[in-house]
Amino acid sequence: MTRDPLSLSIDGLKLGQKFWALISFLCLLAYLVISIYPFLWMISSALKDNREVLTNTSLIPKEIHWEILVDVWNRLDFWQYFLNSLMISVPIVIGTVIIYSLAGYGFSVTKFWGKEFLYVFFMGLIVVPTIVVLVPLVQELRAFGLIGRDASKFATYVGLIIPAINGGGPWAIFLFRSYFDSLPRDLRDAARIDGCTEWGVYARIYLPLAIPAIATVGITNFISSWNAYVFPSVVINNPDWYTLPLQLRFLDMQTVVQWNVRMAGSLITVLPVIIAFIFLQRYYIRGLTAAAVK
């Protein structure tokens, strides 16, 4: 019986509301087209002749070149670099979620000396310029033996993963804390009275409820670490350890940039992200439902 703002259900609404419903539907549709266009462009360019990519603005190729995709797939040695990328991105996501959901809980629920100051400090880190931290980071990694021509694959990846976790930290803290703040405090108080420890409240009540926040933090960090280019290119010295985006650079070793090859490579690289995204999105929607029921 509720009549909500900008409702999309047409039944039993006045004419004006029908009008607005139509307008909002059309706007959503237009937005949908704009959202999907570059993605379609990527697919269409991967199927075009190289010259056509830059000179034919139509989405439909004059002639479909499947062989580009097949050729790129074969040359990319996909599984090796896919595994490399996975070995970096998955620990980053897991580490980020664990460490910063803990921190988010600490900042949201518990009390300790200097909490607010520490929180504001972390928030300040969001706006610290990241552009010139590469050099000192590499010096540190060197001091820890995590970089260099003699570092093992494991050490190199650790050197990639931990700074990336730290880099995503302030945002994750912020999102987790905001999310935990939105949960009713009675939940925690009741559990504490029932004899649940602080750790128990976090692990058994707050964390399961935080699936939407976990999904948001997870998706964001997965995408950014999967697509990362500059930092991995600085840290990794052995071509066998390259991630997918790094390896992609070597597909077009021609005199001229092969745009179609590049697009085919991009398509293959983002494919895992899209699959992971669809997979995570289910949890995300389920989490939303859980949060709405509370």
Partner: peptide, 22 residues
């Protein structure tokens, strides 16, 4: 032979490698 491209990634790689001795 290893290529680090584009050129700004290459410059960055040289600067960081000069600092780490690599």
């Amino acid at each position: 032979v290893t290529a680090v491209s584009p050129d700004d990634a290459y410059r960055t790689k040289l600067v960081t490698s000069a600092q780490s001795g690599d």
